[in-house]
């Protein structure tokens, strides 16, 4: 087979995979703009006859979608802020301080990555129930306030910062907290941003924990709200597609805007031989 032929075949293949990947997403957007019942006809229409925003209006006005959106935003935002702060402090300490038992403790933390989160959910629910946090933002935020992966990510990054920078700040009489704030944090900006992006998108898309902890409909996140909507409105295809669009768009926009930063997180966390 000659080179030209290979090239054509290869690029056709890439195009086909690209279309297969995009088609369901594009169809979601298209169907969300069709009037009720239109998408369920046969053969399935590809484009709306007359685009309408009625389903988006119905979702936000009647079906609480705005509230779910707000809940998701508050929870993902709070988890992102708190965990980025806590993880960065812990990652810094593991990378730049020598104290007894440090490496043992860090290895023990890494071993914790093996435990699937589902194992913790039953006791965590009971625990938060006695503390009165079931069906509250606090309950949804708590398990995400620090993460082993986040600490690992920051530690790897801080270890590459030369000790001389920290020593210089110490000679200038800076307190340890000041060093963290004025030397480490500014240098860590890229990895902090990556971690924040990961955390926000991960928390936004999280389903099982909010499903368990939020018992009142008014406290549902978008994911939980959408899944429960699916139970009641299975036949409203166009409405469900509009709900999916609302749920997907924010993270998709974040990803497209900050792709480079997001991919870096996978590389640091993924190829760690």
């Amino acid at each position: 087979m000659n080179k030209k032929k290979t090239q054509i075949l290869l690029n056709i293949g890439l195009l086909m995979i690209g279309l297969t990947t995009l088609a369901p997403v594009l169809w979601m957007v298209s169907a969300s703009l069709m009037s009720s019942g239109e998408a369920g006809t046969f053969p399935p229409p590809m484009l709306p006859k007359l685009p309408t925003f009625e389903h988006y209006l119905a979702l936000t006005e009647r079906l609480n979608m705005g509230r779910y959106f707000l809940n998701s935003f508050i929870i993902a935002g709070a988890v992102t802020l708190i965990s980025t702060l806590l993880n960065s402090m812990a990652g810094f300490a593991f990378a730049k301080y020598h104290f007894k038992g440090r490496d043992k403790m860090f290895n023990a933390l890494l071993a914790g990555l093996v435990v699937p989160a589902q194992v913790t959910m039953l006791p965590l629910f009971l625990m938060l129930k006695t503390m009165g946090f079931v069906n509250t933002y606090v309950g949804a935020i708590i398990p995400g306030m620090a993460s082993i992966f986040g600490i690992f990510l920051i530690r790897q990054f801080v270890m590459a910062i030369p000790d001389s920078l920290i020593e210089a700040a110490r000679i200038d009489g800076g307190s340890e907290f000041r060093i963290y704030r004025t030397v480490i944090l500014p240098l860590c900006r890229p990895i902090l941003f990556t971690l924040a992006l990961f955390t926000f998108m991960g928390t936004w898309n999280d389903f099982m924990w909010p499903l368990i902890i939020m018992t009142d409909q008014s406290n549902y996140t978008l994911q939980v709200g959408l899944a429960s909507l699916m139970g009641e409105h299975t036949l409203d295809l166009e409405l469900m597609m509009a709900g999916s669009v609302i749920t997907i768009i924010p993270v998709l926009a974040l990803f497209l805007l900050f792709q480079r930063h997001y991919v870096r997180g996978i590389m640091v966390g993924g190829v760690k031989e």
Partner: peptide
């Protein structure tokens, strides 16, 4: 461009994706 497109489903919400596919 392809790399970005191929990655879109990864960041999309699993719930929304499952709902889309249920109709597909």
């Amino acid at each position: 461009l392809y790399r970005t497109i191929y990655f879109l489903p990864v960041v999309s919400s699993l719930i929304a994706v499952a709902i889309i596919w249920r109709y597909l």
